[in-house]
Design a protein around this nucleic acid. Structure first.
Lengths: 204, 204
DNA sequence: TAGATTGTTAATCGATTAACAATC
DNA sequence: TAGATTGTTAATCGATTAACAATC
């Protein structure tokens, strides 16, 4: 029965469950089946589901598939679209901006910014602005999520500008740890961290 | 004093420490200073460093900067270059293939594969092959790391092919959990998981 | 009733943090 | 010597797993 706080780990598993629930065609789904599908521990899945579902699961049957889908979608904020801006329109920034899949996850990147842009232009229907426009675009459109795809040396400065403009969450692809006020959340996507684990494994 | 096993968490922090150590110009560096730089707990950093450094830290002074850099580089396998192939040369695949920064981390992407490729061609000096060539390229060049940037529906099949060809580690950007033999390591880079955390935070 | 599945309470595990003695 | 910093041992914390009673 939906509790009020979810662990980081649980939140990260929800998108997987959701994908599976959308595919499955049965009326009910049990923790046992989902756990087997993903190679997770049954009790872990049961706890995850219990903490997000409004409708309790039923012994012998499991959870109601449709209701569970709605509950997870609500928690992940799919359906409700979040608007984001992206700063740094190099290879990675473009890949993200072009990535059609985000729509499915309730994310829309509505504008790009880059120091190399001198006047408004557009990339696949997404407007690109010079850095000077950052604050006005964010505050006018009340955008709350900023994606940083500039290089490490410039990431903190960009982050400060985003925060000053009123952003509430930052998705950081630069290989640095950003310093932000307490109420701002930062999600780091650092390729070097992932590589560290892979390389170390290969070296053994 | 370098122990034999490192936690996942420690490994992920090492690239940050390394960046900082390379920048700093002093002969010695203390855990205290690094902790302050990154907003981490002092003891956590000290434990991390103790577990990777061959030379013990010295009271009052800290660790020898150069020696620490070498130790971390060795553990992360920088210097020694890992070769990788990438399967799926769409936007994301190209962004990764073009990303110059990987060289710095000891990674070289030596070939790309895609179902849309029908005969060998090249992208910025990197050869692209049809899927049929996957096994022969990997086994001939003894490549041990495979990067998956195909869509979710095809990721497991690609993964199976990579494993069959002899890959030891998989870096997976598709939003699915891959099933692999026990001795293969998979590192997931799932944008939906990151977004789950950000969205949930914004929703509160 | 028997059996599958739920939810809960307790045990385990790994990582972080606290406390403190050792050292230069 | 005093003080900064180390390394180590114990306490805490969060997440996972085990054990088990409740239910349809």
């Amino acid at each position: 029965m939906a509790s009020n706080s979810l662990s980081f780990q649980t939140l990260q598993r929800l998108p997987y469950y959701l994908d599976y629930l959308r595919e499955v065609e049965t009326e009910n789904v049990s923790s046992t089946v989902i756990a087997a599908e993903f190679g997770l521990h049954e009790v872990q899945v049961r706890k995850d589901l219990a903490s997000v579902s409004k409708l309790a699961g039923r012994p012998r049957k499991g959870f109601d598939t449709q209701s569970l889908i709605r509950d997870i979608e609500e928690i992940l904020g799919y359906g409700h679209v979040d608007e984001a801006v992206i700063v740094g329109v190099g290879h990675l920034g473009m890949a993200l901006a072009n990535y059609a899949g985000f729509g499915k996850y309730g994310l829309r990147i509505v504008a790009g910014f880059d120091t190399r842009i001198t006047q408004e232009e557009s990339l696949n229907e997404m407007p690109l602005y010079p850095m000077e426009e950052l604050e006005s675009v964010i505050s006018e459109r009340k955008i709350r999520l900023g994606i940083i795809t500039v290089d490490g040396a410039n990431a903190q400065a960009v982050c400060d500008q985003l925060v000053a403009a009123g952003i509430k969450a930052v998705w950081n692809f630069a290989p640095v740890i950003l310093q932000v006020p307490e109420d701002i959340i930062v999600q780091n996507e650092n390729m070097a961290c992932a590589l560290a684990i892979l390389s170390h494994h290969l070296r053994k």
